[in-house]
Design a protein around this nucleic acid. Sequence first.
DNA 1: GCTTGACCTAGAGCAGACTCTAGAACCTAC
DNA 2: GTAGGTTCTAGAGTCTGCTCTAGGTCAAGC
Lengths: 155, 155
Amino acid sequence: MATTADGGARQDALSIGEVARQTGLSVHTLRWFEREGLYLRPIPRAGQRRVFDSADVAWLLLCNRLRASGMPIAEIRRFAALVQAGPGNEAERLAVLEAHEQEVRKRVAMLMECLEIIHGKVDVYRRHLAAGTADRLWAPPFADASSDAARHSMP
Amino acid sequence: MATTADGGARQDALSIGEVARQTGLSVHTLRWFEREGLYLRPIPRAGQRRVFDSADVAWLLLCNRLRASGMPIAEIRRFAALVQAGPGNEAERLAVLEAHEQEVRKRVAMLMECLEIIHGKVDVYRRHLAAGTADRLWAPPFADASSDAARHSMP
DNA sequence: GCTTGACCTAGAGCAGACTCTAGAACCTAC
DNA sequence: GTAGGTTCTAGAGTCTGCTCTAGGTCAAGC
């Protein structure tokens, strides 16, 4: 990430627009992140303009993954606050990450269950369409009582 | 689903409270679903009270899976409208389900990618904690310029 | 006859995560 | 020196998906 061997973080000064391009986030969102306390450090200014560096970008890219995997903003803020608090709370940071990992694994498992059910439906529709019996999949809205056995073959 | 061999759907008359219990949805949500047009038929009334049946419950359980897997309410409404429109549009219904299935598969793939990254972080923290070098994972918030090489080992 | 509990409608309120607006400052290029 | 693009702050608005409130009806049990 750093272009120099050591201590050269401030060499890559990035404008908010540049960071937006590199992270896929809008400048609005980047400013909003600051208000929400999601950065790992107070973003410094040149005059009144924010000056980011590549470590900020790296963090934002990780944030994107955390958000995409469903971590609430409040949880990201908690993690960022731990980092800001400095060394000594690494076990807590780990706990946050582990908890999220477990969450995501649960979500994946749940989605797989859903997929099975959804794919089952897809399969039923495909077979009925192929067999030309698709019209028996669900009764029309105001089906009279004698025809509503069809209501029980489900969509 | 049906307790009788054919045409007996109306035998299981369920109150909104009963349906809430069977589906895990709140009565508020069940009424809101109606306003949103998510049912497969107009829910009939006895007086002014809704009378559900087991086919409604089966649909709601499927809805739960669709919602849990991220299908937007608008899409569920679209599907419900197709069913309400009666036989003849089964290919369209299939298309909706197939599109959703693909969406979910994509989401699962994305989550797996995220998982890898998150697990990588977890791993780093675990190893540093075990080695007693966790304090080098991230520089404190106001680290001076000479120490911010640490900023590049990422959280 | 009265209380209790389940139900009704219409509509307001809320949480989360952005997204945009207004009005102004600043920098760069021509 | 002025036009155009980027940035700034503070705050309002939006969208989704519920969730709750207010005020009322209705049936059953004591």
